[in-house]
């Protein structure tokens, strides 16, 4: 391999890893809810769209950015508790498939509500982070993607600290380990679920702003959920570390496949290659790389 080819390979790899971080951002929202309630929340993409659309619409109506972030967060908190009250609580003790279908329906409702309230127009979103690349040894690296990776790292660190060093974090983990035992020691499940959905709303806001700055704030934002699913299969549905590692593997894998395998099969393969990768892992490790192995007495 010549030096130029090697540099190109490294550039594709770095680009893929940085894209993977963006996928992880979405996947973390899924993990939070799955970890504590066992629900695969298909509405996470719609929440991301709703958060970004709310933020950008408030800013366009003249609100200062910090105020818009605060207000959007409040709205996401209200949304989180509303979902807990109106969807999850009535369906408690139903099968995981029922809950999954409920979140699928929820995603359509949130998407529709977002467009009904804020309209269907495409919005630009400038976070003040330049996207002009810088060059190291002939390799172009995106400033924006690096900043996004930094924000993701800070968010993961913050969530980890929250889980391990706060009382409510401890309660989250207790519920994740055993809901019945948690109830038996007096934890209020409904309040914890509401808090988890709020946390997922916060993740949706952060992911929505970063993805919105990349794509523009528009309906297609909700489709980024499709990028998170293989990440979850690969990393495990209940592991934040798994979401990060899974995102990196999916991002790097699909970019390398598109560049090096794509030309042999007509190109355009990255959309489904991530799922091939996830399926491969699923056959070898059904719980994903870092997911909890489920053992049930039957």
């Amino acid at each position: 391999m010549e030096v130029y080819d090697l540099l190109f390979f490294v550039e594709v790899l770095i680009g893929g890893l940085l894209s993977g971080v963006m996928y992880s951002l979405v996947a973390i929202g899924f993990v939070l809810i799955y970890k504590t309630s066992g629900v695969l929340n298909f509405a996470q993409g719609a929440m991301l769209l709703f958060a970004a659309l709310t933020f950008v619409s408030l800013v366009e109506r003249g609100l200062a950015v910090p105020l818009a972030i605060g207000l959007t967060l409040l709205i996401m908190v209200a949304l989180g508790f509303a979902i807990e009250r109106s969807v999850l609580r009535p369906l408690v003790n139903r099968s995981p498939m029922t809950l999954f279908m409920a979140t699928l329906g929820l995603s359509y409702i949130i998407e529709g509500a977002a467009q009904l309230v804020w309209g269907t127009q495409v919005h630009g979103l400038d976070l003040g982070i330049s996207d002009v690349p810088f060059e190291i040894a002939g390799i172009f690296i995106s400033t924006f993607d690096l900043a996004a990776a930094g924000i993701a790292a800070a968010m993961v660190a913050g969530l980890s600290a929250f889980f391990y060093w706060t009382r409510i974090g401890l309660a989250f983990r207790a519920v994740a380990d055993d809901q019945f035992a948690a109830l038996a020691v007096g934890l209020r499940l409904s309040r914890i679920w509401g808090s988890v959905w709020t946390a997922a709303g916060f993740v949706a806001l952060v992911a929505g702003l970063l993805w919105g700055a990349r794509l523009g704030v528009q309906f297609s934002l909700s489709l980024v959920v499709l990028k998170a699913l293989p990440v979850l299969v690969l990393g495990g549905f209940d592991s934040i570390l798994g979401a990060i590692v899974g995102g990196l593997i999916v991002g790097a894998g699909e970019k390398l496949a598109e560049v090096y395998l794509g030309p042999f099969v007509g190109g355009g393969i990255e959309g489904w290659f991530a799922y091939v990768l996830a399926l491969g892992f699923l056959l070898l490790r059904p719980a994903g790389l870092f997911g909890t192995k489920l053992v049930e007495r039957v």
Binding site: V12, L223, E270
Partner: peptide, 15 residues
Amino acid sequence: IEVPHPGNEQQAQWL
């Protein structure tokens, strides 16, 4: 060069 639908990720194509 093809971009898979919907086209929200194009790093590989532009490289």
